[in-house]
Amino acid sequence: MKSTHSMTWWDRFRDHDITYSFCHSPVTMLAAIVTLLMVLAAFGAPLLTSYTPFEPGSLSLMDAFLPPAWEPEGVSQHLLGTDGQGRDILAAIMYGTQVSLTVGMLSVLLSVAIGIPLGIIAGYFGGWVDTAIMRFADIQLTIPPILIALMIDGITRTSLSSEVHEVIAIPVLIVSIGLASWPQYARITRSGAMVERRKDYIAAAKLIQTPTALVLLRHIFPNVVGPTLIVATIGVAVAIIIEATLSFLGVGVPPTTPSLGTLIRIGNNFLFSGEWWITFFPALTLVVLVLSVNLIGDWLRDTFNPKLR
């Protein structure tokens, strides 16, 4: 075996267990490719499509209700057809995925940013600090995230004018989903911190008078953060679903900047009149996106859990 010293980071990367496991799991590779393509399509939408489906001025009602291109009445300009206002479904999905992914990732980032520090503090200090934080988390867990989001949305909707509400709708959604799911991350890091704090390397760090904040940051945090990242991956998928549910119920993002959930809701109205493509393709996108992210999360969990290997 080559000495570790002379290996470049690329050699280390290729030699790593995780890389090996990834290359031997075709499902995960497929899921990763699909996710990557969807992320690229979503955030590269302005470059990939000339349609601007959410600028009313660019729309033509003449193009309304066009079926997908392979149907007899379809046209090749609108590959997946158009909706009731002549918006290109493919372009709408690309922009909608962008909103869904943004909400999904930022809300997970927020709950991680709240949950990890609180979990580490609860687990490391124990006692009444632990009790206070974890009881608070328990209370939070008894309220479903959708209910919290409905509540926050309701408050902002009544207290702000509708123009202002439309501007801040997405941040509000991110905050409400983020606030609802931090206890998960707090619980995971807490149990990790409870194990790590008893280990001798923590005692060794205390022995040289390392300030507690630095012990938490440099020793506890790197050792407990791993499992959280796995849950966070699945958390992105869950957050996208919650966002879609809320948007479907009409309390999520406004119709002017639709997410996948909004698109599904809009399309739902036309389902019985035969225009199935308006709701089908956004729904399919949502299913594929969430499934791919979940598969990656599952693979991460299996790979990092030595007991399942």
Partner: peptide, 19 residues
């Protein structure tokens, strides 16, 4: 004082930060 007093622990596995 803590500079002059150091400690070696029992378990060689738990006394080194794995990260």
């Amino acid at each position: 004082i803590s500079k002059r007093v150091q400690m070696i622990f029992q378990s060689p596995y738990a006394s080194l930060d794995p990260r």
